[in-house]
Design a protein around this nucleic acid. Structure first.
Lengths: 244, 244
DNA sequence: GCGGTCATGGGAACATCGTTCGCCACGGGC
DNA sequence: GCCCGTGGCGAACGATGTTCCCATGACCGC
C-alpha cells in the first residue's frame, strides 16, 4: 500500500520499487497460481519452485501459507471438486443421469491435466465433495436404490472415474495425439501377429479389444456399474434395464 | 594392469579380492534385487541408487542393462503379471469365476506394495499379460458373453482392480493399521456432525457410506461390473442374475 | 602371441525436487 | 519508543534420475 504523503521518489530508484511491488501472498493467491500452472502445463510441471517463481519469490515463502506440497494439492483438489455438477433427480431417468454425471465428472478431472493422480491419493472430504456425494446419493435414492447399496456405489463410481482420468493423463503425457494413433495401430498389428494356437481367443477378437476411443470405454464402464446396480433391484425392473 | 606374472598377493590384502567378487550384473539380477526391495519396503523405497547399493555398485552401472527407471518398472510389472492366475472356465459359474479371479489379481498386486501405481501407467502387453487376458476372455466366452462386450470388459475390469490396489497402497503408506481405524472413526463422527438440513441424504445413511472393509468394497465393485455385463445378455438370463 | 577395440563397471557431477535454517525488515502492543 | 513476533526469502540440505567420462578387462584379427 503506497502511503498518502509519499515523497517524490528518486528517478534512478524508480524502476526498482514497482518491480518489488508488495503482493500480499496469501493461501488463495498461491492456489490460484498453482491452478494456472496445472491447467497450462500439467501436474508434472507443478513444483513449489515453479509456483514461487510465478509469484516472483523464493520457494521458502510458500511454506508460511501452505504446510507442504500435499496440502497445496489437497486445496487444489477441493477447489476442482467444486466444479463438479449433478442434475436434479428425475426418477425415470436415474440410470442415464448417473452415467451422464460420471461423464461430466471425468471431463472436469481431465480439464486439469494430471490432477486425478493426486486426487486418487486423498479421498476428498471438503464441503464441495460432500455436496457432490449428496447429489449423487439423491439421484440414486430417487431411482429406488436401497441405501446400503447406494453408499458403496458412490465410492466405487468415483474410484472408477478417477482411475480412468489417471490412465488418460498418463497416456496423454508421453504421447502426442498422432503418436497415440500409431501406437494403437502397432498394438493391433501385434495382436494380429500372435500365434493363433496359443492365443485363440485374443487373435479372434482383436477388433473388440482395441477399438473404441477413450470416451466410449469410459461410458461403457459407467454403464456396467449402473446396470450392475440396477440388477440388484428386487421387484420391478429398472426402466433402462432391457435387452438391447 | 595385472600382468600374467602376478606377484603373490600380500596376506592382508587377501580378504579384499573375494569381497570384490565378480558378480556378473545382468538385467535379471537387477530386476531380482529391485523386486526384493519393493516387496520389503514398498515402491517409495525403490530408487536406482538403492538397487545399485544392494548390488554393491554405483547407480550408473545399472544403465548398461536397463534403459531407465521406467523400463525397470515395466520389467517388474511384467514379472508380477506372471503371478496372475485364472481358473479353467466353468460355464455355469462364470460370474463367480470372474469375481474370484479379480479378487486374486488384487491380492497379487497388493502383495508387491505400491507397484500398482506404476502398473496403472503402462498397460502391460508382455506374454504374461497376454496369457492373463486370454484366460479371462475364455472365461467370458464360455459364459456366453459376445466378443464385442468381452473385449472392452477385460479392459475395464483390470482398470478397476488396479485402481483399487492403488488406493489401498496410498492409504496404507501413510497410516498404520490402528491409525486407519481411528481415521474411519473420525470420518464417521464427522458425517454424523453434519447439518441434517443441508446434507439430508448423507446424514441419514452414514453407516452405508463408511462401513465395509477394503475387501468387501472391492468385491462389491467386481460384482457390479460382472452383473452389469450379464445384464446385456439378450435371450437367457445368466444363472447368477437373480434377485437376492 | 599381441595389440587394439569395445562393452561393461563405476566415480563424479548435473539438474531437479521438497523442505528447513537463519536472517532481514516491518508493524502493532506494552 | 522499544521489542518482539511474523511474513518474506536467499541459501543450503538431502534426495532423486540420469549423463559424462574414464578405467578395466575380455575378445578378436593379425
Amino acid at each position: 500500500m503506497t502511503g498518502t504523503t509519499e515523497i517524490p521518489p528518486p528517478p534512478w530508484r524508480r524502476p526498482q520499487k514497482p518491480a518489488r511491488q508488495r503482493r500480499p501472498l496469501s493461501q488463495e493467491l498461491i492456489v490460484d497460481t498453482a491452478m494456472r500452472i496445472l491447467d497450462a502445463e500439467g501436474l508434472d510441471a507443478l513444483s513449489m519452485r515453479r509456483v514461487a517463481m510465478e509469484l516472483q519469490t523464493g520457494p521458502a515463502s510458500l511454506y508460511a501459507h501452505v504446510a507442504n506440497k500435499d496440502e497445496l494439492l489437497e486445496l487444489m483438489i477441493d477447489r476442482i471438486t467444486g466444479e463438479l455438477d449433478v442434475p436434479a433427480p428425475d426418477p425415470d431417468r436415474w440410470q442415464e443421469q448417473v452415467v451422464e454425471a460420471g461423464m461430466a465428472a471425468h471431463r472436469v478431472w481431465t480439464r486439469h491435466p494430471g490432477i486425478a493422480r493426486a486426487a486418487l491419493a486423498n479421498i476428498p472430504l471438503g464441503p464441495n465433495a460432500l455436496h457432490y456425494t449428496e447429489a449423487i446419493l439423491a439421484l440414486l435414492r430417487a431411482g429406488g436404490v436401497p441405501d446400503e447399496r447406494a453408499g458403496m456405489f458412490v465410492d466405487r463410481l468415483s474410484l472408477y472415474i478417477l482411475a480412468d482420468a489417471v490412465e488418460d493423463s498418463l497416456h496423454r503425457e508421453r504421447r502426442t495425439e498422432e503418436e497415440t494413433r500409431q501406437y494403437y495401430e502397432q498394438v493391433r498389428d501385434y495382436f494380429h501377429s500372435l500365434p493363433a494356437d496359443r492365443f485363440p481367443v485374443i487373435t479372434s477378437m482383436v477388433g473388440a479389444l482395441v477399438d473404441g476411443g477413450g470416451d466410449e470405454r469410459l461410458r461403457y464402464g459407467l454403464e456396467l456399474l449402473v446396470r450392475g446396480l440396477a440388477s440388484y433391484a428386487t421387484g420391478r425392473r429398472a426402466p433402462a434395464d432391457r435387452p438391447d
